[in-house]
Write a protein that binds this DNA or RNA. Structure first.
Lengths: 197, 197, 197, 197
DNA sequence: CATGAATGAGCTTTCATTCAT
DNA sequence: CATGAATGAAAGCTCATTCAT
């Protein structure tokens, strides 16, 4: 008699996803077990499989969510007034975010994407979208005279994205690194890279 | 009365290490199994343990080798005539290298280092060493007037290393990326970053 | 919403323990494998680990149960009217019991306790408890004039326990030994040992 | 051209056996590995198999040796003047011996004999021999009026042997046991058991 | 005689997944 | 919807034994 409530279903899914994310951050994709995720989400293993077909599906959903999240932030980027300033502050926001959740998940995800074609495809599609947004953003900056018009906007966008990825390793390679000073130098690099000559 | 032949022993060790590296590149640290490594090295599982005490020891040996290798390359860097050119071409060499072995291993290692204090410590020590070499190299460039003297050499080195890390994701996010053009843009970024104003 | 049923859980645990006991009796602690125990209990290897954390934990549970069992029998001993008669018949009961389960387990356990400090500590604690019960029993017999008051009750208890241990080897050294006659001689020894002069 | 030297061969065999005995005392029959025995005997695993066909053969040889040793000591027993005194002092000698080598080997051997028919047969044959020696000894004591003529010499011998076995567990069950006092009580028991009424 | 490299079956344990209720 | 019991395929690793030299 009781019909399934799609809203509640979606809520539970999100709850499990969050629990999984915490576990993945702590233990990595391979290190985290279904049992741990169930404990964290306070459900039984049998029940989890009502919401996700497999562990890989959970990984996929998390990658999806992260990718969508990043894309939406990139989409909002366009609103900023000064191109370079906006970019740099977005980068700073990302760094703060990952200091909280741990960079491991993202690196795990990237590594996994480099291997699994399924996850790779998701990431590649999203990356292309994000790169286009970023390239558009840069082109707009070029029009406004805030970004060097000589730059290949598309390639510059790709390189900037890899710089953002690289940021995650800064703290792993040296946890005691002075965050302020490193941010400043990073800002210098991006500014000099993009500024018109 | 034949005593053990350390040369052959070392050769076999290296052989196994190479086989393991191929497996890790293909499957990741966790994904690769002892059985796969043994198959790849054409030895029995029991025999592998004459050369390495555990799977972790294999990983450790690979990391050690990689670190030593990178350090030696960095140390030789000092010989180049032009600071920035040398740096850029070294970066290109690294990229080519990692296209062969697959970037996954490094990302796996970085992700793991972000979680496990034991692995983290190894990476941090190695990173500090490499950063010092790179910073020295940059300072030498500053003395020669080839690098902007205003830059904090130490921080710049840290940022450059994270840029190198970031490069690994370029191909993961877009496998069809035009390598030449992306290299060119990367070169532009580094050149502008480091050049005296 | 069905919560776990602790009764069924405990029953299954006991079932596995009995299966393990049979295997240990047949093959010894080291000789018995998890696979054999699982086959004997008709469960899968994975499932066994829902009930016991490790093979060692199974051994521990069996030892604990045996110790508790022995202690409870010793505690009830006090009720008997004649000290020596009660003791001798208890001894006989122990012999019958061990003819069923096989003496090997106990000898294995004793040998292991002589080596591993962890297992040794468990055994020593249990032995001390049992010896105290036995010594109290003897002292009570001394008060009643049924046991030689000159005897050091504590030491006599220790010696009696070692005699009980020794009984296990009787059948190993000679499986065809006449059980009745040997019991009689044993009874003679204990009676003469304890009787007042 | 070089003939094998049976003397040297036998010496090496004995050497290996001693090394194995040390390992077995330390780790038990199952716990000790061929590798450990080889290390202890300073030979290679391949070489060990020139002297023993299998690990079980080593165990068998050790049990054989122990059994022979015990038998020869029992045979010499006959020389003593007073039956009970001789017996008690022999028992004390055995205890001292086993405090050195650890009782584990003997218990391991007994446990193993209870399971493996092959080892069991060796032990049973030897035990019967020893029991006969001991029974003869007791009968001689009966003739001399030093041992209760009512006793069934054969059964008494069997019981005494199991008492000797049981002694090994005294120290395992309580390592801090006062050796002198326990020896005294044991002596009391045996004296009262055997003495003429 | 002697070495140590090499084998491979089998061990304990883990864990994603399914099933009965 | 929800539980937790149950599965079973594999994982990393050990070790008695054999083989080439």
């Amino acid at each position: 008699m009781r019909k399934i409530d799609p809203v509640k279903h979606e809520e539970k899914r999100a709850e499990i996803l969050e629990a999984a994310e915490r576990c993945f951050a702590r233990e990595g994709f391979h290190g985290a077990t279904i049992a741990q995720i169930c404990a964290e989400a306070s459900i039984s293993p049998g029940h989890l499989y009502h919401y996700f077909a497999s562990k890989e599906a959970i990984v996929g959903a998390i990658v999806d969510a992260g990718v969508e999240d990043a894309a939406s932030r990139f989409a909002q980027l366009t609103e900023g007034s000064n191109t370079i300033t906006a970019l740099v502050s977005e980068l700073e926001r990302l760094r703060a975010l990952h200091r909280k959740t741990g960079a491991g998940v993202l690196l795990d995800g990237l590594a996994e994407a480099g291997r699994s074609p399924a996850i790779g495809a998701v990431l590649q599609k999203a990356s292309r979208g994000m790169r286009e947004l970023l390239a558009d953003f840069l082109r707009k900056g070029q029009t406004r005279g805030q970004v060097d018009p000589e730059l290949d906007a598309d390639m510059a966008a790709a390189v900037l994205m890899s710089v953002i990825d690289g940021c995650k390793t800064l703290l792993i390679r040296d946890p005691k690194l002075d965050a302020k000073r490193s941010a400043k130098v990073l800002e210098t690099m991006i500014t000099r890279f993009l500024s018109p000559r």
